[in-house]
Design a protein around this nucleic acid. Structure first.
Length: 504
RNA sequence: GCCCCUGUCGUCUAGCCAGGUCUAGGACACCGCCCUUUCAAGGCAGCAACACGGGUUCGAAUCCCGUCGGGGGCGCCA
């Protein structure tokens, strides 16, 4: 095959939301096209009128874009080989069908669905592969033509040789062979006049000058049928590469039960698109150097379609989370704040109208609080450290810290000094800590644990020297849910300690 | 049932094609230690796999055969 310019396509059917398996197929196609300076085509396979919906096509395009993919030709992008929706190409298929019929390479099939279904069941019961009997193949073409003209409905089937072997060389799997005895005459055109999948792909891939078909392994057994169709039309088939499936944790087909599987869910839950992209590339492929956290450009350089694994991969959220954390870490403070904002605003923690000061505060807060976050949907929970302060709802560990011997001394001393100091900043805080150490002789955990509980009402969270400025600055800003200053917090804790000393 | 694909740590994988350098490498997760006023992050170490059985060979994760497991297909779905 003489390939001048590599052209690949992603050809989803708009019958539902795009899931990770398809997304990975799209990604590999894109990577392969872009690294070879080729063309990436998006083709919508909407020949299943019952299930195809326009809404799904829009969502599909949105999801693909979110992932960071783009295409040179497609229903929205145009191109010289359109239209890119199969439902708009019906007349094109018809031309080819006529040709096949005239040349005697295809024939009308008048069998009813019930009839076929019965035959299939019989075959299955007999323990053989259900193959179309070829009953209508022997019909006189003139007679068939008359029946059609008189208004009878019929499908069109391809004549498949009864004997022989058909083979092709898969880019990933190598040489594959199939026995023609086990391939029945496939339906090319349904009695509704709509082309069947196996037929439309062949014509479209040819007309769109596709050089490499990269798709899921569920299409392996379709490939011989398609090659047969290419032959009947005297066309040269493209090269094929069949990708292994993506499975769920329990090694069954990925479904909702495994967590998010539709691509838009990953956006909603707050995964970074480049991280999602990165992780998907790692499903069935490994970078040669072993460094796995990679940007798009690096992936483009390193990816190798021929090195893609032949066995199915299990989608692992743990690893996705790790990849996502690594990508979050690479973001600058502004970037972190921008990404965090929608999640925090939706949770009612941030005002819709953010001032410049708000943004600067958010940048600082995000820098500290986004560490170790798997996905942004965890952010409201993380930020509640700043926004929620309820000394009434302490857990057991916090209570026991307050009950310790040093706690009342530390908190009382801290409260007194804080009252006198007014506000608090890092320098004042450090000075106060020093004074308390000197006056009480308490230091280390005995000093910091009670302070942490007094200020945050929790036993874990940020380092206090990061926490204090955030809270103090935050207290001066207006938020839908105001942030309490350190002074307010200590006062409340103290009051709580005194009033309910017995039962904390 | 029949056909096809596939089988290395729990998971993603390197190695397999061109058999020895593999006491099987890396990453996630897990466990431990260090760092640290907590958590996290970071650093260091550890646990952990050639599905099984036969061959071929001086030698097999690598080649051959079989078994078993997993997946896909067998549609007028795509």
């Amino acid at each position: 095959m003489n390939i001048e310019k590599i052209r690949v396509r992603f050809a989803p059917s708009p019958t539902g939301y795009i899931h990770v398996g398809n997304a990975r197929t799209a990604l590999f196609n894109w990577l392969f096209a872009r690294q070879n300076k080729g063309v990436f085509v998006l083709r919508v396979e909407d020949t299943d009128v019952e299930r195809s919906r326009e809404e799904y096509e829009r969502r599909l395009i949105d999801d693909l874009r979110w992932m960071g993919l783009d295409w040179d030709e497609g229903p929205d992008a145009g191109g010289n080989f359109g239209p890119y929706r199969q439902s708009q190409r019906l007349d094109i298929y018809q031309g080819y069908t006529q040709k096949l019929l005239q040349e005697g390479k295809a024939y009308y099939c008048f069998c009813s669905t019930e009839q076929l279904e019965k035959e299939r069941e019989t075959a299955l019961a007999a323990g053989t592969m259900p193959i179309y009997s070829g009953r209508c193949r022997v019909l006189d073409p003139g007679e068939a033509e008359r029946r059609i003209r008189s208004g009878e409905k019929a499908a069109v089937r391809l004549k498949v040789p009864d004997e022989g072997l058909i083979s092709f060389d898969d880019l990933i799997r190598g040489h594959l062979e199939f026995d023609l005895k086990l391939i029945g005459d496939p339906v090319l055109v349904r009695s509704t006049g709509f082309p069947a999948y196996n037929y439309a792909v062949v014509i479209d891939d040819h007309l769109m000058k596709i050089t490499h078909v990269v798709r899921g392994e569920d299409h392996i057994s379709n490939t011989p049928r398609q090659i047969l169709t290419y032959r009947a039309l005297s066309l040269e088939p493209p090269l094929f590469a069949h990708l292994a499936m993506v499975m769920g944790k329990d090694n069954t087909r990925l479904s909702k039960r495994h967590g998010a599987t539709a691509v838009d869910q990953f956006a909603i839950e707050g995964y970074l698109a480049p991280a999602f992209f990165n992780y998907l590339a790692l499903l069935g492929w490994a970078p040669p150097e072993g460094r796995e956290v990679l940007e798009k450009a690096e992936l483009l350089e390193l990816f190798d379609l021929k090195k893609v694994s032949r066995s199915a991969a299990i989608f692992d959220y743990e690893k996705l989370h790790w990849i996502n954390r690594q990508h979050i870490k690479k973001l600058d403070p502004g970037g972190k704040a921008r990404r965090a904002f929608p999640f925090l605003a939706d949770a009612g923690l941030l005002p819709e109208a953010m001032t410049e000061v708000h943004w600067r505060w958010l940048e600082k807060a995000a820098e500290s609080l986004m560490e170790g976050v798997d996905k942004f949907s965890e952010l409201p929970q993380k930020f509640s450290l700043l926004f929620d302060f309820t000394p009434l709802a302490l857990d057991e560990e916090a209570k026991s810290i307050l009950k310790s011997e040093s706690a009342p001394k530390v908190i009382t001393a801290f409260a007194q000094k804080l009252e006198r100091a007014g506000g608090l900043d890092y320098a004042k805080y450090a000075a106060i800590i020093e004074e308390i150490k000197k006056e009480t002789g308490i230091k280390g955990k005995a000093l910091f644990h009670p302070l942490r509980v007094a200020l945050t009402a929790r036993t874990s969270g940020l380092e206090l020297d990061k926490f204090i400025p955030l809270v103090e600055e935050g207290a001066r800003l207006s938020f839908p849910r105001p942030i309490k200053s350190c002074l307010e917090r200590v006062r409340e804790t103290k009051k709580h300690l005194e009033s309910k000393a017995a039962d904390i």
